[in-house]
Design a protein around this nucleic acid. Structure first.
Lengths: 117, 117
DNA sequence: AGTCATGTGTCGTAAACATAACACGATTTG
DNA sequence: CAAATCGTGTTATGTTTACGACACATGACT
């Protein structure tokens, strides 16, 4: 069900075509996990790894950490902390935006970034 | 450090002044946990409970679930799912709003609610 | 033919999580 | 005073999480 592993494997094999150092073993070593464990992750034999390991993996593979975490069913702890500091406010905001189209959310991001508040 | 337990105890004892049925034991029974466990929760002897238990507790005490979850260091899973569906978008949004004043966020909520996008 | 690297199978495990079960002494209530 | 209720202490247990260690078979390369 989770295509976390599939994504990791595909990304790794894509990188490997230009760079032989993207074997499972070498990536595992750079990421700091056992090859056997990474193998199991890629085949979905075990659940997606911890937040920390997922972030190191994302960095190694040039993927967006938030996207990879999402595939693993997680939300980055720094985002969680933003919500936890003002739970009512952010809970309302997120539930309001649940069905909003992408462009509407993007507009909000831009408005806030451009500091017109 | 966590004043999750303190908050629960204070809220419960406040309710108890008008209603005898807010003893630790009776609340525990209605919430569906062992009295000994609720006692430990209130005194911070154990970590805050699971999301499901926290929500039942909030409902029983008339507290905002998102606020109580936040005190317990958690974020409601429905909010997490909103983020996981569009991680890049919502990660950007939240990080943009991290330092924004409350009124700016409220304005966004209202804008979206009033559908002028 | 021998070395080397690759991916994988099997087994174990330390820590955290989320309670349950039971008992006990103190206080309140009838 | 007896019974019930109160909060709490102790001990135990099942589950999940997040890996590590090690061995093994396969195939490429030299």
């Amino acid at each position: 069900m989770t295509h976390f592993g599939v994504t990791v494997r595909e990304t790794r094999e894509r990188l490997r075509q230009n760079d032989r150092s993207y074997s499972l073993r070498q990536v595992a070593q750079r990421v700091g996990v056992e090859p056997a464990y990474l193998s199991k992750i890629e085949r979905g034999d075990v659940a997606p790894p911890s937040e920390a390991t997922t972030k190191r993996l994302a960095r190694e593979l040039g993927e967006d950490p938030d996207v990879l975490l999402a595939l693993g069913g997680k939300v980055s702890s720094d985002l969680q902390e933003i919500i936890r500091r003002r739970p009512r406010l952010f809970a309302d905001l997120l539930r309001q935006l649940r069905e909003a189209p992408d462009h509407a959310i993007l507009r909000v991001v831009r408005e806030v970034r451009d500091g017109d508040w």
